[in-house]
Amino acid sequence: MTEPGPDRLHELPAEFADALRAPFDHLLTDPVRLRIQAALVALPAGGSMRFTTISRTLGISDGNLGSHLAVLAEVGYVDTEVTWRGKRRTTWYRVTEAGREAFERHVAALRGIVGPPV
């Protein structure tokens, strides 16, 4: 069976062809970063999550989470906000518009590999 090349994409369903054209986001090829983005993208628009809640949701260590969040914040995929309650400091993380778009493109590319639903 011949695999569809770029010149034959028009023969595929439009949604599937779009997915095949979608590029992977090189930052999100790291599975931990992709999972962090998945958790933040699932929140309602403007919603943010505490560091400890992200760590519990993903089941990863604080050190691992902290280093990947720093990378995502540096490229502008994640926004941070610090709040104080008395002397207690809480850092909140929220996905940015750029982060949401990158995640959606990456997921579209993954769907392109899996193929159209049978």
Partner: peptide, 24 residues
Amino acid sequence: DPRSDAAGTLADLDAIGRRADRAY
């Protein structure tokens, strides 16, 4: 197998989305 790898990743992302939704 890239197809099953991608399918596994998508399933994992769905599960994470459900857990984040529950946390919310």
